[in-house]
């Protein structure tokens, strides 16, 4: 098997003045080479924290437990020096807001050259050659001129392309894209999604796409994991998730996402709002908002169970069976 990244029983806890808050709750995930795994969830569901932990970017008050295995090396218990050899080299991240992720007082070419210098010790000339090639690959026009520009001189779409170029420059095995298109206009979003699709097939890297937009997921993902209140509630192949949904939360998300093709008078919204991780409800975290809720849901938290080959869900009931 080409299992590249494996996360097992990962928990993340933050110590806050109001006590400790469990942001991620015993989750397990894996990605293979050339595969795109989409992590779907609303804000506060723990989807970003999971992968910030994998990158060693957890905030100071956070504690993590579990195993994160990248191609045989344990990312969680690694010395900082060793981790720095992997980050940006074997595992790279594309952030949501390129304006805050890029350094404002460095030319973009220089910022990317830093990565090449750190990991491969390349000189200026050789590095520029590679950057030029990469800029061409991610469709940045006039690469030589753009390299000499500062982030604020670029448009949002170009900045995101620079971020992608920076993530790809060392040809990493795993690319984590945290809401890469949320800050962009739809027309630019379509361009970036096409680019990510190309990267997936061309470079053969594993892409982990963190998003809340099910339309984006449908276009690129091979497998999907849906997160709610720090736990994975459903995971499986993209077709199973969309057409053979097992968890009521996933179904709710699908029902309330708007599409150009649906014309309905009233959206089937999910009532209520996501729970405060400080104060999770007893039993199933989704029970206060679930339409099929029964007594057992308020008492016992459902474990994530395999319902069908490669398709698991954390619900006491089969969807549709009363």
């Amino acid at each position: 098997m080409n299992r590249l990244l494996e996360i097992k029983d990962l928990s993340v806890v933050f110590d806050t003045p109001d006590g400790s808050v469990k942001a991620v709750n015993n989750i397990s995930l894996d990605v293979d080479r050339g595969e795109c795994l989409a992590i779907v969830g609303e804000s506060g569901s723990g989807k970003s924290q999971t992968f910030l932990t994998a990158m060693g970017l957890l905030a100071d008050n956070g504690r993590s437990a579990g195993i994160i295995n990248l191609n045989g090396s344990d990312l969680l218990n690694m010395q900082r020096n060793d981790l720095n050899k992997l980050r940006g080299n074997r595992i790279a991240m594309i952030f949501q807001d390129p304006m805050t992720a890029l350094t404002p007082h460095m030319k973009v070419g220089e910022q990317i050259r830093e990565v090449l210098d750190h990991h491969q010790g390349l000189g200026k000339k050789a590095a520029c050659e590679i950057i030029r090639e990469m800029f061409n690959k991610v469709n940045i026009p006039e690469p030589d001129r753009r390299m000499e520009m500062y982030p604020h001189e670029l448009s949002g779409g170009l900045r995101q392309r620079v971020m992608i170029a920076m993530a790809l420059i060392c040809k990493p095995d795993v690319i984590i894209a945290d809401e890469p298109t949320t800050a962009l206009d739809v027309t630019v979003q379509a361009q970036i999604m096409d680019l990510l699709n190309e990267i997936k097939t061309e470079i053969g890297a594993a892409i982990i796409l963190i998003t809340h937009d099910l339309g984006v997921v449908a276009g690129i993902a091979d497998r999907v994991a849906v997160m709610y209140a720090g736990s994975i509630v459903e995971s499986g192949e993209v077709f199973d998730i969309f057409y053979n949904t097992k968890h009521p939360y996933t179904l709710g998300l699908l029902n309330c996402s708007l599409s150009l093709e649906k014309k309905i008078d009233f959206l089937e919204a999910i009532d209520g709002h996501p729970p405060n991780p400080n104060n999770l409800p007893n039993g199933c975290p989704f029970n206060p908002r679930c339409k099929n809720v029964r007594d057992i849901c308020r008492e016992e938290k459902p474990e994530i169970k395999i319902k069908k080959q490669n398709h698991s869900s954390a619900c006491h009931f089969e969807l549709g069976v009363k």
């Binding site: 979003q189 379509a190 339309g215 449908a218």
Partner: peptide, 15 residues
Amino acid sequence: ALLSAIPIPDPIREK
């Protein structure tokens, strides 16, 4: 162009 850029939450149609 705007219409064609919008992703459809339906993997078969979208692909």
